[in-house]
Deep mutational scan, measured.
Amino acid sequence: MQNSHSGVNQLGGVFVNGRPLPDSTRQKIVELAHSGARPCDISRILQVSNGCVSKILGRYYETGSIRPRAIGGSKPRVATPEVVSKIAQYKRECPSIFAWEIRDRLLSEGVCTNDNIPSVSSINRVLRNLASEKQQMGADGMYDKLRMLNGQTGSWGTRPGWYPGTSVPGQPTQDGCQQQEGGGENTNSISSNGEDSDEAQMRLQLKRKLQRNRTSFTQEQIEALEKEFERTHYPDVFARERLAAKIDLPEARIQVWFSNRRAKWRREEKLRNQRRQASNTPSHIPISSSFSTSVYQPIPQPTTPVSSFTSGSMLGRTDTALTNTYSALPPMPSFTMANNLPMQPPVPSQTSSYSCMLPTSPSVNGRSYDTYTPPHMQTHMNSQPMGTSGTTSTGLISPGVSVPVQVPGSEPDMSQYWPRLQ
Rank of each mutant, 00 (worst) to 15 (best):
Q89Y: 13
S119T: 03
C94E: 13
S35C: 08
D115I: 11
F98E: 02
A70G: 06
N3W: 10
F98H: 15
L11I: 05
V126N: 07
R19A: 05
S85C: 13
L149I: 11
L46I: 11
S35G: 15
A88K: 07
Q136W: 12
G18A: 01
D104G: 12
I123E: 00
V84D: 01
K91C: 04
R92Q: 08
P118M: 14
K86H: 08
A99F: 02
R103Q: 13
S6T: 07
C94K: 12
Q47N: 05
E93V: 12
I66P: 05
F98L: 06
S24I: 11
E133D: 09
Y90C: 10
T63P: 01
A131D: 07
E101G: 15
Y61I: 15
G13R: 09
F98M: 06
T113C: 11
E82S: 13
D140K: 12
Y143D: 13
V83C: 14
N9D: 02
L127C: 13
S65M: 09
R19S: 04
G7C: 06
G13P: 01
L21G: 00
P68W: 03
R77Q: 04
S96I: 07
W100G: 05
K55R: 15
K28Q: 09
C40S: 14
S74W: 04
A70T: 13
L146C: 14
G72W: 02
R38Q: 05
I42D: 02
M142K: 10
K28W: 06
K28H: 10
S132I: 11
I42W: 02
H5I: 12
L32S: 03
V84W: 05
D23S: 06
D144F: 11
N150G: 08
L46W: 04
P81L: 14
A70L: 13
I117G: 15
E109L: 13
L127I: 12
R105A: 12
N9P: 00
T80L: 11
A99I: 02
E31T: 13
N3F: 09
G12T: 02
S119D: 04
P118F: 02
G64T: 00
A139D: 12
A139P: 08
R26T: 01
R103T: 03
S132L: 11
S74L: 01
V14E: 09
M137A: 09
Q89I: 12
L149E: 07
G51E: 01
P39N: 00
V48K: 02
L146K: 10
R128G: 07
I123T: 15
A37T: 09
N17D: 03
D115P: 08
N50Y: 07
L57R: 00
G64H: 12
K91E: 05
A79H: 03
R147F: 09
A131W: 09
N50D: 03
I102N: 03
S74K: 02
P118S: 05
N116L: 12
V48D: 02
V48L: 04
N9C: 00
G13F: 01
Q47H: 09
P76Q: 02
P68K: 00
S24D: 11
V84F: 04
I87G: 00
S74Y: 00
P76N: 03
A37N: 07
V14F: 10
A37K: 06
N9G: 02
